[in-house]
Amino acid sequence: MRLTELPLRQPAYVDLIDWSALSASEGQRLREFGLCEGASVEALHHGGLWGKGPIACKVGRMTIAMRRNHAAAVTVRTGPDAAP
């Protein structure tokens, strides 16, 4: 499932990132935030009263905020054997 669909506070792992959906600099920044295939993620908060707001999620030990269109480029997997 996509990171945008991941229920809040449910631990998951990044399965795949569609780098082509991100601009070069956005992709670079997400990598620098530690987002990569196999990283642990947890969606913490969905923002936005005006339509679709940003998402706050935990990547490793860091909490980052990103817009939905970026989060939609991240596919995650959950469950007992999700860990890489």
Partner: peptide, 9 residues
Amino acid sequence: GGFLMEMPK
């Protein structure tokens, strides 16, 4: 522009 930001404790 996008919004990619670290959230401090």
